Simulated scan of single mutants.
Amino acid sequence: MPIYNKLVRDKIPQVIEKVGKTFTVRTLSNEEYRQELRKKAFEELEEYVRAEDDAAAIEELADLLEIVHALAQCHGVTIDQVEAVRAEKAEKRGGFQEKIFLIEVHDE
C-alpha cells in the first residue's frame, strides 16, 4: 500500500475511485495548505527541470502555473494582480528575453 502524504489535485480521489481503489485523505488547514503548495511547487519545478522534451516541459509548466494560481489565492490576490506585479517588474528591470548571463561586477 503506497503512502503519499502530499497535496494532490482536487479530482484525484475520483480518479482513484474509478479504478476501484480506496484511499485516505484529510483537509488541510490554511497554513498546512500553503506549506504543501510550496512543497508542490518545488516538486513540479524539479519535474520541469527533468523533462526530456518540449511536450513534457509544457505539462510541468502547466502544473507550476496551477500552483501559482493557488498560491496567489492563498495570499489573498488574484492571478491578474500577480501578473500586474510581474509586468511592473519587467518594465523596471526587464524580463529574460535577451538571454543576458551576468558573469561578474567589478568594484572600481
Rank of each mutant, 00 (worst) to 15 (best):
V8Q: 00
K11P: 00
K11D: 05
Q14L: 07
V15R: 13
I16K: 01
I16T: 02
E17H: 04
E17W: 03
K18Q: 13
V19L: 15
V19I: 15
V19F: 13
G20F: 02
K21I: 07
K21T: 07
K21P: 13
F23R: 04
T24E: 13
T24W: 07
V25T: 14
V25C: 09
R26E: 15
L28H: 01
S29G: 00
N30Q: 09
N30T: 06
E31T: 12
E31G: 03
Y33M: 00
Q35M: 05
E36H: 04
E36F: 06
E36K: 05
E36L: 03
L37Y: 00
R38S: 12
R38N: 12
K39I: 11
K39L: 12
K40Q: 06
K40C: 03
F42M: 03
E43N: 11
E44P: 08
E46P: 02
E47G: 02
V49F: 08
E52G: 09
E52S: 12
D53N: 14
D53P: 01
D54Q: 10
D54A: 08
A57L: 05
E59C: 11
L61A: 12
L61F: 08
L61D: 10
L61P: 05
D63K: 03
L65N: 09
E66Q: 13
E66P: 05
I67V: 11
V68K: 06
V68Q: 09
H69K: 14
H69V: 11
H69T: 11
H69W: 10
A70Q: 02
Q73N: 12
Q73H: 11
C74G: 03
H75M: 04
V77A: 03
D80L: 06
Q81K: 11
Q81G: 05
Q81E: 14
V82Q: 04
A84W: 01
A84C: 04
V85H: 04
R86T: 05
R86Y: 12
R86D: 09
R86V: 07
A87Q: 05
E88M: 07
K89Y: 09
A90E: 15
K92Q: 09
R93K: 14
G95H: 04
Q97F: 15
Q97P: 09
E98Y: 10
I100W: 08
L102V: 15
I103A: 08
E108P: 14
